[in-house]
Write a protein that binds this DNA or RNA. Structure first.
Lengths: 162, 162
DNA sequence: CTAAAATGTTTTATGAGTCTAACAATCATA
DNA sequence: TATGATTGTTAGACTCATAAAACATTTTAG
């Protein structure tokens, strides 16, 4: 049922969601600025997304996501955030590069791989970095969906220490 | 001087290099099969790459990379391999998905980020996974370009043990 | 309230990448 | 070596994404 979107259309949906979440009324010009494209490109994209039932856009008016559009946008944003945080928190990239790379990578990573990035991140955050069987524990977590016993104890301990 | 290539043109160059490395004479049909496109698309791509001095392709003949084309192809392939190995060796993805994802990610990862993926991989391989200050050591490696003393000793030791 | 500024849309064009259909060259073998 | 099979090319069309220019609407300030 849900037609799969192109990278470009996903970017438009994500931009609308992000602008929306910043409180402002979403306008064609702002979307264009956010994505580095001119207004006619935005109008064209909104027309297409509108036909697909992902946005509501009355001529000269404001832009809104439909429930379906919002689901897609959240999904894209989630991919973006997992990748951005992996780049900053694990690879220790600078925030600007991480943001830009995540913006491109979010369209080229399969769901299965995204899931792994996400789990890696969760693992890093749950298991302090001086834990001994590091990568082995990560593999355990991937395979069984549960953190190894030691990591759980560890996390509890460090939380108490504060 | 070097014109920056599109994802698509990079794929063609990479495909030529890979087919070449498998020993066979490189033909239009094989390139098409490798990339999942029809022959006319290959011909068009080769014409363009030819004009840019990256491949040599005489009508109805074989395809060869020029030195410049070979450099570009190697670069793309290197990106591909770093990402593929990261996906398999670190995230523990299955080889098929890793291959496919690397194929798309290789066009969306900046040089700076690729460098980090590469270093992460090298670090994982040099420092056995039960090393204590895991991520901390990785950060040290990134920052100073050298493996921490402990990792070096560790690697030497495990090599001897065999 | 009206004129100028800002914003948005339509029209038309471009470029990249792909495909199908029709044509051309090469090759392989009977 | 002639001919059918294979491989390659050209021509023409399509999609997707974009932008410039011209036009339309809305907002804002005097």
């Amino acid at each position: 049922m849900k037609k799969q979107q192109t990278a470009s259309m996903e970017d438009y949906l994500e931009a609308v969601a992000v602008l929306r979440s910043r409180g402002k009324a979403v306008r064609v010009k702002e979307i264009g600025q956010a994505l580095g494209v001119k207004m006619p490109s935005v109008t064209a994209a909104l027309r297409k997304l509108s036909e697909e039932g992902l946005v509501e856009h009355e001529r000269y008016g404001r832009v809104k996501l439909t429930p379906a559009g919002d689901r897609t946008a959240r999904n894209v944003f989630h991919r973006h955030e997992v990748l951005r945080r992996f780049l900053t928190d694990v690879l220790d990239m600078d925030p600007t590069t991480a943001q830009e790379d995540a913006c491109r990578m979010e369209h080229s990573v399969s769901p299965a791989t995204l899931e792994r990035f996400s789990k890696f991140l969760a693992f890093v955050e749950a298991c302090p970095e001086d834990r001994p069987p590091w990568l082995g524990n990560y593999r355990h977590y991937i395979q069984y969906g549960e953190l190894p016993q030691e990591c759980i104890l560890r996390s509890a301990r460090s939380r108490k220490q504060r």
